[in-house]
Amino acid sequence: MIEEAAGTWGLIVGVIVLLFIVLYFIPIGLWFSALVSGVRISLIQLFLMRFRKVPPGVIVRALIEGTKADVTLSRDALEAHYLAGGHVARVVHALVSAAKANIELSFNMATAIDLAGRDVFEAVQMSVNPKVINTPPVTAVSKDGIQLIAKARVTVRANIRQLVGGAGEETVLARVGEGIVSSIGSSHSHKAVLENPDFISRVVLEKGLDAGTAFEILSIDIADIDIGKNIGAVLQMDQAEADKNIAQAKAEERRAMAIALEQEMIAKAQEARAKVIEAEVQVPLAIAEAFRTGNLGVMDYMKYKNIMADTSMRDSIAGEGGKSKE
């Protein structure tokens, strides 16, 4: 009895496991859901999907959604897109949304956008509901030298045809910032910009900044403009400071040259004094030679000494008189 009971339980477990395996490889419930939803797909195809590493539930649900929305889909195309690494559900959602919004979007275009790494469903939603992008503060200087800081709001709509290979939001923001800088820089006065900020919007829109991007620019609105520094005055001050430094450097150069010339003249004067002293040394020798040769007598020598004494006295008197006057 025990052996018969164990065999019965073993048989039941085996049947349950076999039934689970059969239902896993042949999803009868999924096939029935597709049948009642109007999707014609055979059990053999659902069975073969397991071997092709394609989840039948993803493909069947996508076919059911497309059928209910009157969007024609191919099972082979959906399987190929899944095997290529795409998001089948996202592509089908985008196709259904595009069809309801009367937006032209083919299956090949949707799969290409999805495989390119962009969210095709979000792109369709953006085509229906435009997106507002806030630019960072853009700094520009008008011709009168006043710095202006502007912020803009860019309303864009996704361009389905340019999503593959088109530039993103960063490029749009960069182009808008460049246009704002150009338009403010061409203004003769910052007051004119503050009075008519829509001038910036018109100039920027006329440049066609959305060319080659994945978006279509609908409007550019200047949200805020603040006054920054007086760049013209700062530049003039810097130039004046630079000119002053140059003038000081040239004056210092001239002063150094004058000092060098003065030192040179002092050296020449010292050299001349040395020559005078050297000449004065020869006077006593000449007097002695005159005594030996008889050309100078004692009385002549005494007269010479008296003259020298008188000259020295006059010099001392003149020196004392000059000091008293001072």
Rank of each mutant, 00 (worst) to 15 (best):
N230G: 10
V54T: 13
A110H: 01
G297E: 07
T72W: 03
I200H: 00
L23G: 10
A223L: 08
V154W: 02
A290I: 01
R157A: 10
P284M: 08
D243S: 10
S127G: 08
A214N: 05
K143I: 07
N295F: 04
A6G: 11
D221R: 09
G145V: 04
A80R: 03
L173P: 03
V22E: 08
S37Q: 05
L209I: 14
D310R: 06
Q125D: 12
L11P: 05
Q162I: 09
Q263I: 11
E280C: 14
Q282T: 08
I64E: 04
A6K: 15
V281Y: 08
I160G: 02
F215I: 06
I220A: 05
Q239L: 08
S219L: 06
D114C: 00
K303L: 10
I21M: 12
R292K: 07
E326W: 01
I307Y: 02
I246N: 09
L18I: 13
A98D: 03
Q125K: 06
K229S: 14
L35I: 00
A110V: 09
K151Q: 15
E195V: 06
T171P: 04
Y82A: 03
S74N: 07
A258V: 12
K151Y: 06
A260E: 15
E178G: 09
G185Q: 11
V58T: 04
L95F: 01
E326L: 00
A101P: 14
V88H: 01
T311I: 07
G228L: 04
P27S: 00
L261G: 12
S97T: 02
E252A: 15
L209S: 00
G185M: 12
D243N: 07
V234A: 05
G166T: 12
A260S: 14
T311P: 01
V283R: 03
V36T: 01
N295V: 07
I259V: 13
A272Q: 13
G10N: 11
M237A: 09
A80Y: 00
G185D: 08
G321Y: 09
L105V: 10
